[in-house]
Structure formats: structure tokens, C-alpha cells
């Protein structure tokens, strides 16, 4: 069996070394360099999620530190039922959503608009993913900035992290139908804001 610690020391860890192997070895040896590898892999992604949801770079940096500290202290409880990345993203999204609630940054106005959509529309997801994915980066940021933290988190899970509906259910601790419903609403909201802001006409 490959000794991962020696592999880290000799620089032989590569992109293909599974996260779960690194964690197992870390739990055995408590060698910080193994955790560093995980940090290098995911710090950027975690930060990107934090800054997208919290909309403030300093808050995002603080959140990232708290999230990794939380992960570092609770990594022994990681059972390997889900992928490490899914577990880490779960901690990240829940932390950021709690943080926005705590700071009362949720856009209350958005709640009313979503309620109206729910009352008038059929819950049939006929929104082409391509319509969302094709939005330019600079527009994407501005549209997401106008969305509620929990809605944009769902979109990030689906389109940025490629999480399955089942994984998203585990992260947000909701039923599959509830997640599909909220995801549909989030997509509708995204498109509505995009159209309002940039007069998108499908071209």
C-alpha cells in the first residue's frame, strides 16, 4: 500500500490522489501537510462560493477560515458516505446561508416575488439549462448578487458543483420534491432578473 505521508513529503501526491485517501492518512498521522493538500485543492472553490453568497470579500475570507477550521476539527466525523467535496460544500453553503440570515442580508423583497411565481405558474421545469449557463460572467455576478442566499446556493450546487438532486437534498436537508420546486423557482428568478437587468432577448 502506498504510504501517502511519504508521498506528500516526496512531492508525489498528484491530482488523482483521492481526497478520501488523504483524509484516512491524516486521521492516522495528524500530519498537517496532508490537510494542506486538501486546502490547496478546495480553498479557491470555497472562497468563490463564500464571496458569491456573502457579496463581501473580507466576510468571505473570514467565512472561509471558519469553514476550514470547522472541517479541520470535525474531519474525524467524516464517514465517507458522500464525497469529501460534497461534505465540504455542504458545510460551506450552510455556513454562508446562516451567516446571511444572521446579518439579515436576505432580500425580503425576493420572497414576495417568488411567492407570486409559485401561485401563478405550473411547476413544470421547462427552462432550458443552456439559457442559464450561457450568461456572461460579468452579468452572472450581478444577477446572483440580486438573489437570495438560499436560491443562489441551489443554483451554484447544480450548475457550478454538478451536484445531483439527491446530493442537494442531503446538503439542504429537504425532500426531493421541495428541492426541485425551489430550484425551479430559483431558475425563474435568475432569468427574470437577467432579463430585467440586461434586456435579454434570447439572441
Amino acid at each position: 500500500m502506498i504510504n501517502l505521508l511519504n508521498a506528500v513529503i516526496s512531492g508525489a501526491i498528484n491530482v488523482n490522489t483521492p481526497d478520501e485517501d488523504l483524509i484516512s492518512e491524516y486521521l492516522l498521522t495528524q500530519n498537517a501537510r496532508l490537510f494542506d493538500v486538501l486546502y490547496e485543492r478546495y480553498s479557491g472553490k470555497v472562497y468563490a462560493k463564500c464571496v458569491t453568497i456573502l457579496k463581501d470579500q473580507d466576510d468571505a475570507m473570514d467565512a472561509m477560515q471558519d469553514i476550514f477550521m470547522k472541517v479541520l476539527l470535525s474531519i474525524a466525523s467524516f464517514k465517507g458516505n458522500a464525497k469529501f467535496s460534497t461534505w465540504l460544500y455542504s458545510v460551506t453553503y450552510n455556513f454562508c446561508i446562516d451567516e446571511t440570515r444572521r446579518k439579515k442580508k436576505l432580500i425580503i423583497e425576493g420572497d414576495d416575488k417568488l411567492s407570486q411565481i409559485g401561485e401563478t405558474e405550473q411547476y413544470v421545469d421547462n427552462i432550458d439549462d443552456e439559457r442559464l449557463l450561457s450568461v456572461k460572467v460579468e452579468h452572472m455576478k450581478l444577477v446572483l448578487d440580486d438573489m437570495r442566499a438560499d436560491d443562489k446556493s441551489l443554483l451554484l450546487m447544480k450548475y457550478q458543483d454538478d451536484l445531483s438532486i439527491k446530493d442537494i437534498c442531503d446538503v439542504v436537508k429537504k425532500s426531493e420534491s421541495a428541492v426541485k420546486m425551489q430550484l425551479l423557482r430559483a431558475k425563474e428568478k435568475f432569468i427574470k432578473i437577467h432579463e430585467e437587468k440586461f434586456h435579454y432577448d434570447g439572441q
Binding site: K45, E130, L133, V135, M140, L144, Y159, Q160
Partner: peptide, 9 residues
């Protein structure tokens, strides 16, 4: 295919 979400990240 182009994915604005991943590009943003």
C-alpha cells in the same frame, strides 16, 4: 459547453 457559473468561479 460554456458554463457561466464555472467561469464565474
Amino acid at each position: 459547453r460554456y458554463n457561466g457559473f464555472k467561469e464565474l468561479e
